[in-house]
Design a protein around this nucleic acid. Sequence first.
DNA 1: TTGTATGCGTTATCAA
DNA 2: TTGATAACGCATACAA
Lengths: 336, 336
Amino acid sequence: MTIYDISEKAGVSIATVSRVLNGSSSVSEKTRQKVLAVMEKYDYTPNAFARGLGLNTMNTIGILCPDSSDLYLAKAVYYIEQKLRDNHYDSLLCCTGYALENKQKCLNLLLSKKVDGIILVGSDFVNETFEENNYIREAAKDVPIMILNAVLDCPNVYGIVSDDYRSVYEATSALLSSGVKDILYFYNANTYSGKQKLSGYQAALKEYGLPVVPSLIQFYDGPHEDISAMIQALQDASKNGTAFHGVITSDDTLALAALKYAVQNNLKVPEDFSVIGYNNSFITVCCNPELTSIDNKPETLCGELIHMLMEVLSGNSVPSKTVFSGEIIKRGTTRF
Amino acid sequence: MTIYDISEKAGVSIATVSRVLNGSSSVSEKTRQKVLAVMEKYDYTPNAFARGLGLNTMNTIGILCPDSSDLYLAKAVYYIEQKLRDNHYDSLLCCTGYALENKQKCLNLLLSKKVDGIILVGSDFVNETFEENNYIREAAKDVPIMILNAVLDCPNVYGIVSDDYRSVYEATSALLSSGVKDILYFYNANTYSGKQKLSGYQAALKEYGLPVVPSLIQFYDGPHEDISAMIQALQDASKNGTAFHGVITSDDTLALAALKYAVQNNLKVPEDFSVIGYNNSFITVCCNPELTSIDNKPETLCGELIHMLMEVLSGNSVPSKTVFSGEIIKRGTTRF
DNA sequence: TTGTATGCGTTATCAA
DNA sequence: TTGATAACGCATACAA
């Protein structure tokens, strides 16, 4: 069934069928009904490819995500897809992994599919050096690019972030106030978001007149889901003479590892050992005691991200950087 | 840049450009190089919509998933997307939720976008009554449909499942052998997969000459992530006089709830109380003790699913039902 | 080996 | 309010 078939059976021109299809007002009610009846009868659906060719869009947004099975990223992808569909856009998903080369390849793939915009889910897409972000700048010349949890100063690129600096600053302050002075910061990414968090930790220590001890800043660079390796990293730090009675992490999985480390070493949580995670993901309620964690409001961020994307696609201008506040969710691994 | 521009600048016809583009052998090396050079120079990429219109395909597969933030489903989507891309197909993702009406709407949406095939992720898409599955049968008339974890007897529909019946049968048998006789089966879905699991539980009891006690079969129909509600359901069962020293669940989250129930009631795990979950997801290692669980090999299933889809799209015939075996992963919540 | 001409199914412009 | 027709950018059958 094509528009020609319908026009013939309805005894009108294809132009009229097209008008009915697109809700044009300049078609008589009588003709409209006639055409609609024929469409209904033959269960006609317009050919999306032809429409795409003519309009130069198929209402599709590309979603780039390093790992859609990651608890936090999966939630974000979920929100994003739903909200896009609410706005009559479809989602072309690409799970890129964490290697830069593959991210570039996937981004170009999406571009070649002529998506109307691209969403980078997670701060992993923004790299440290200027050159390593050129692939984003290039793409931004073609379509608007929205980044969740990172910012990149470039035209047509928009960042929606949670105030990671402040969240960790407040978490650290709260832990210090509760009497834990030797806090280890345990993190796994030097992304934009990662740096913000670390700065928050350092600023809070300074605010309290405490020194920033390098050995209390532990970078974990093992596999993303290998809890044993994370625990081992903490054991190593401890063996090397670093004493700590609290851990703040950049991620709930790391926090879970810190909790398991405490259990292994017979440290009472939260009496003798405190832990604060990040993301407020499902795993915070899987363990015992449950993890205090920072909620960075992924649904809020995603909602705003889509809202802004729609504005950009409508030709309206929106801020290149939007910041939301996080919130500490208190559970069983802290005394406050 | 269109094919016309390239042909003009290269001094050849558009047919020749098209041939170079599609790697046709019948073009002289000299001409090929000339055309490739021009393409390179102007950074030409063929228009995907025009190509789609001509070929009537854009190499896209629709992925339907009730909730892509569910730990198990998210992993499946991740594997599927990657393997599809390996085969030069793109993934159009739709998170449908659990309501039938919305599943239908999303499926039709994908169809209208002219995807080449559809993958239903999870057994939730296959309903109990014949009529409620008509939306799948209708869609199968247009494109092949692959279902992960469920089967539907219908042409052009292919199911790839784990042997849930046998897995739960063996889990139950193992628990019985370890001395736990009053095992509660705790589940949350009456899907195809859900029924298989329940049957496995019942069969094992019969095999051991034990009665199938209705009160030991508990259906949980609350929210998917509400652990408190799950624990409460077990408390209620216990209060109503049902005694049980072991729980087998259809899902790791339910198993986690069972473990928390045991902790709340000061039951020693696994000495006095055993738990076996299902899916072998990340949460099995989040708690203490860690959960014994059934690994239903999602990566294997997804790999085979994509392989079969590619065969179908190539015109080859494949079995309408493919079954893989699961495996019990022993951890800390069982004595065996 | 190369080129010409046509079809793919829409939307949109311009006349009527 | 309607219709004829061009454009969108490619693949391909057929001719040369």
